[in-house]
Design a protein around this nucleic acid. Structure first.
Lengths: 234, 234
DNA sequence: GCGGGGAAAAGTGTATACAAAAAACCTCCC
DNA sequence: GGGAGGTTTTTTGTATACACTTTTCCCCGC
């Protein structure tokens, strides 16, 4: 995806991962962007990146192409790459797409959820709340959030869709992070997660789906307006 | 995309498009894959492509990276690229994702559809049926099919989603083409389009959405089984 | 005949080098 | 002062060259 795909495959943990430099650079850059170390609009100089990772510009360029297709950066011919600065409307759309797809996949997953899945979700949620409590490192928030959601989605058995959702979440999380930094409103999402998990446990697809829709769309709308007002000020 | 994105932007027709070789090569290859000139599983040799377009391998490699992210090809380290051969399950999933998203976007679009939109949809549909009638060139079928659908979706005002859908359709169409080649059942889709358009004209989102869902999911399920049985034979 | 091993060929991955475009700067003129 | 225009610098785009990996194929031993 492509539009679709993330190059990190489901990977059997046994396989030795011998990725090319280009893939490695792409992974590093993706992480930096998601963690907010590279903020939106920032120029990505090929030479600088090449020097930082001590490689030539060729693998760097290939990595940039890949990230462009993921939507994380924007490349303009002869002018280089910048970290994508989504418009408020585009941000709203991203969250809307997520809401539509995640609600669908959750409905497919609910009948297949096992006790083991619930146990794992609980575990992830506990660590999520721990991270929130420690208030230490917002950058790892996104990882735990995705871990929780994907645990509930996995039993739907939709690998392609899950991959697409991961890419979308990558692109949304850097804005969510921004929002959290300002509001510190991490606990509300935590409560929503609890409600969601309960609805799954009691096998109520309608309730769960509705809750998830609200959870994602509210975040999206809030962020859309937040970014809009923030940009208007400047 | 990223998962996501097609690099052909909405483009104001006035802007002079000075794309890099890499982008040009990507466009050419994408078209070849969609049109079925390159069939699934086929190896893409960098040297051969470079020679064909009379460029060096650098822009070819960047183009391949981009197509990989779109899901059209698969790159394995040190072994090169092949046109993605999706499993029957993956194909089913692609159509399912389309169904979910296209039904949603259609619902958003229906209230905004104008007479001008209907006129344009009629026009596209007429040309679609003309192409079907002439039976000449299946390869252009996908273009007209997408033209019709995107005409109905455009008023939803969801550019990001529309872009994602285009990429998904690109990936689905090469299989639909295969199916049409065997069954020649082009007319059924044509009839479904008529029903869909009528439901839009009478502003019945539920009817339209249901029809669209059926239209996409039936095609997807048919194709999934078709590909499965075809592969089993081999 | 048929594996096994090892050179040779083919193909991919990356670095260096150069060309071309854009940006920054500087000078001159008004 | 403030452009207009040209020159330098920076940065991107592409080609060539070479290193490394995989595949092919041939030869040998059995």
């Amino acid at each position: 995806m492509s539009a679709t795909a993330n190059d990190v495959h489901p990977l059997k943990s046994t396989a030795i991962e011998r990725q090319s430099l280009a893939s490695a650079v792409a992974d590093k850059l993706r992480e930096k962007i998601i963690r907010g170390e590279l903020h939106e609009g920032e120029q990505l100089r090929q030479d600088a990146i090449a020097a930082e990772f001590q490689v030539s510009r060729i693998p760097v360029r290939e990595a940039l192409r890949h990230l462009e297709a993921e939507g994380l950066i924007t490349i303009v011919a002869n002018r280089g790459a910048v970290v994508s600065a989504l418009s408020p409307e585009e941000i709203g759309e991203m969250f809307e797409i997520r809401a539509v797809l995640e609600c669908h996949v959750l409905r497919q997953a609910i009948p297949n959820l096992t006790k083991e899945d619930f146990r794992k979700a609980e575990e992830v949620l506990r660590r999520y709340e721990q991270v929130v409590e420690e208030d230490s490192d917002i950058s790892s928030w996104g990882t735990w959030n995705w871990n929780f959601h994907s645990t509930l989605y996995a039993p739907a058995n939709r690998p392609v869709l899950l991959n697409l959702l991961r890419t979308l979440n990558n692109n949304c999380d850097r804005y969510t992070r921004l929002h959290l930094l300002f509001t510190r409103d991490l606990h509300r999402a935590g409560r929503a997660h609890r409600v969601l998990l309960d609805a799954c446990k009691t096998r109520q697809p309608d309730v769960a789906s509705q809750e998830l829709w609200k959870h994602i769309m509210e975040a999206g709308e809030y962020l859309r307006d937040f970014i809009k007002s923030r940009r208007d000020k400047q």
